[in-house]
């Protein structure tokens, strides 16, 4: 597709590794034990899908807004993005100097619209969490304390500095880069991080706020990094645009 050619063209000028990597990779789904499991089962099936190798860059997003005027800075409606939408761009139609940084200051609506334009969608929380468990060699490295500490140290870095270009970390098991260390990423069901106490235990007031009997409890409270992602997502609204929040797209496999 056209946009990918643009990306690859830009990538060639800055990073050959980038050009060498495929733009998206196939993820072979599996049953996995989510951080917040379903009430009646420990495992949830993540079907096969494809996912962008890197977070979406400013230059890719610029190509999108050029053909989708509704999503240009200055044109977007308040319902769909707050006032800091794309505010880090030097101009509404320029990403000079930040071409290969992940796009940030994008709302959930904008991220969805972008992915939709690529015939894709935002990944679900389950999909994102499933692939983020991998380190370079293992599908699931979360049992490894060193991996957890490694991820945690990414999240502990003070923010505020210039965001690095994409392709900062080597590919994980699936061939995905930069899941950690660059930016937070939107997921389709970001507003599903509803994590309640068990209301059946007594007449607590929470029952009036959340549908009764719907309890969620973390499977492993030691996964602090995962905990932090859920907390982060639950602080968001769909119009929010944050300096450190970007996204990448996922794609359903063509039915065979």
């Amino acid at each position: 597709m056209r946009y990918w050619l643009i990306i690859i063209g830009l990538a060639l000028s800055s990073s050959t590794a980038l050009a060498a990597a495929p733009e998206r990779v196939k993820i072979t789904g599996d049953n996995y034990a989510p951080f917040y499991p379903d009430k009646d089962k420990d495992q949830t099936l993540v079907p096969d899908f494809e996912m962008d190798t890197f977070p979406v860059t400013n230059s890719s997003f610029l190509a999108f807004v050029k053909t989708h005027a509704k999503w240009q800075r200055g044109s977007v409606k308040a319902l769909f993005a707050d006032e800091s939408y794309l505010e880090n761009w030097p101009a509404a139609d320029s990403v000079a100097g930040i071409e290969n940084q992940p796009v940030t200051h994008v709302s959930w609506f904008a991220a969805r619209a972008y992915c939709s334009a690529q015939n894709g969608r935002l990944p679900t929380e389950h999909e994102w969490e499933f692939v983020s468990r991998a380190d370079e060699t293992r599908v699931d490295a979360t049992g490894d304390l060193a991996f957890n500490q490694h991820v945690l140290s990414f999240y502990s870095k003070p923010g505020g500095g210039q965001i690095d270009n994409i392709n900062q970390t080597s590919a994980n098991y699936w061939g995905l880069h930069d899941l950690y260390g660059l930016v937070w990423e939107w997921v389709e069901d970001f507003n599903s991080s509803i994590i309640s106490s068990d209301n059946r235990q007594g007449g607590d007031k929470q029952e009036s706020k959340f549908c009764g009997g719907a309890a969620l409890n973390a499977a492993n409270t030691r996964e602090y990094a995962t905990f932090m992602r859920f907390a982060f997502r639950s602080s968001l609204k769909s119009s929010y645009t944050l300096h450190n929040l970007g996204f990448r797209c996922a794609y359903d496999l063509k039915s065979e």
């Binding site: 089962k41 599903s192 509803i194 719907a214 969620l216």
Partner: peptide, 14 residues
């Protein structure tokens, strides 16, 4: 906020 916590059962803010 809502989440399907098991088949056909949703946890949600009221």
């Amino acid at each position: 906020q809502y989440r399907e916590v098991s088949e056909g059962q949703f946890s949600h803010t009221n």
